[in-house]
Amino acid sequence: MGQRLDFERPLQELEDKIKELHSFMEEKKVDLTDEVSRLEKRLSKMESEIYENLTAWNRVQLARHPERPTTSDYIDRIFDDFLELHGDRLFGDDEAIVGGIATFEGNPVTVIGHQRGKDTKENLRRNFGMPHPEGYRKALRLMKQAEKFQRPVIFLLDTKGAFPGKAAEERGQSEAIARNLIEMAGLTVPIICIVIGEGASGGALAIGVGNHVHMLENSWYSVISPEGAAALLWKDSSLAQQAADTMKITAPDLKELNVIDEIIPEVKGGAHRNVEEQSKAIQSALTKSLKELTQLTKEELVDHRYEKYRNIGQYTFVTDTIGLK
């Protein structure tokens, strides 16, 4: 079952109680079946209540769950023949981004994603999934390669942001992100992006300009992390829970704002509860997207992406201008 989050504590207590009764029954050879089934019913009701009414902050917690599946967990389960490819040919290999070639249901694809570590040691190697410019440039190299050989590109987004460091700035973090946005805009193959965990700001968007953008039910995607928003807007990062709500960062919020296409449902309690099941849900979303997008010509794919982003935003007009005439 894994590590439980604070809002899951009532469930944990009930589960423990049921377990206790079970062992008691076995030990003392008494029949408490009625009591157990009553508690199990209560548990199932409570589960529904909690998981169907998750707050924005609960979803952020699930997206950050230490056992939440990462890009490579999904690559292993959804794709075949994956061959990881390294390096940007300019500076180095950034392990905060993984990418390579594979087959998806028998067809060649390129798959690229942010890669967090599973433990501290791996996180140090992968810089907690926060890329440097060479990570984005590796992604760029691989997507151009995909375009040359006309295979679709699938991006898995999961980052706390592009790394804010001295070396990253020196090597042009801004340019690396900006270049990817431009090149993704013009890529003549299908691009499908799926937010699997955290989608923070330009660091996520840098591999996030797609024909279809989907989000896992308990992932988040915004211009800044809830903590960053709280610090910047209210000078108090402890207001992160409130910011998570105000900033409208959950999958249902983004669907409502017309920024994403599909919400991929998560297994009850979050993706980490059953990686196999979750992979199947992602796979079926990918199958559907690819079926739709592979019917489009190169030009249509680029136009489709253009129309998608061209229409994002809300504004209005006033009749008299107060500014320049």
Binding site: L181, S201, L205, G208, V223, L233, I249, Y306, Q314
Partner: peptide, 22 residues
Amino acid sequence: ARMQEGVLSLMQMAKSSVALKR
């Protein structure tokens, strides 16, 4: 990006990029 418009501000980066590419 402007914080008060959240993800819509982020998406303006993509919007201007698709136009620039064309």
